[in-house]
Amino acid sequence: MSEIKIPVMADKAAAGETPEILFWVGCAGSFDERYKSVTKAFIKILNKVDVSFAVLGPEEACTGDPARRAGNEFLFQMQAVANIQVMNGYNVKKVVTACPHCFNTIKNEYPALGGNYEVIHHATFLQQLINEGKVSLKGGGEFKGKKITYHDSCYLGRANNIYEAPREVLEALDAELVEMKRCRTKGFCCGAGGAQMFKDAEKGNKEVNIERTEEALQTGADTIAVACPFCMTMMSDGVKNKEKENTVKVKDLAELIAEAEGL
């Protein structure tokens, strides 16, 4: 296999090139041990389909989403304005990200601060690749006959009405897609949105992620597919809490596609 390419915007700009796509990695994709493998899987896919892309690398910074949801509008806007300056500086037109929170913020909230880009979540991007035949999955591969359930991320689903793209990606795997009782518009949160990821839950009688994991396990699926770093953490913790980590895997869409592609 040829050496994997991870082009950085600054280098591309120095060479006078303007990549078509900016892959926005996000903080979880950069630092979180588990989610880094999603970033890597997605990079492998980008390499395979030979699309013109680059990452910001060390120039990327938090979009400000958790700060804004926790009420700190100053901090959010400081982050946003700085990021927009960087992206506008590179004349970025199209952004793809594997984080629904980054996706929502850049797509919906950066325009008010001068950042106007076409923003696509990786679920939609993968769906497009499949539709265009750029990723042709080997039918009857390792997922054939396996049950996969998809956990809707609130920031993809209700927040941005993206329900079908991730499901179409999973269907391409030739696996059996089984739905949880609460799905799509009624999808039950993993418990981490709205900056809950960064604090303990308030007092209650159950953790949200346990409630959701139980629902996912009830489907009898071997794989819980997610499309969000926070959902990934919450569902993985839930599966561990239920001591099912040996039989049930929590995987991101990009990981599943990369696996099916043998990448």
Binding site: F31, A67, A70, N72
Partner: peptide
């Protein structure tokens, strides 16, 4: 959350 704010301010990540 205040620690998270501080992390974003100083490390640009939550």
């Amino acid at each position: 959350w205040n620690s998270m704010f501080q992390n974003i301010e100083t490390s640009f990540a939550p």
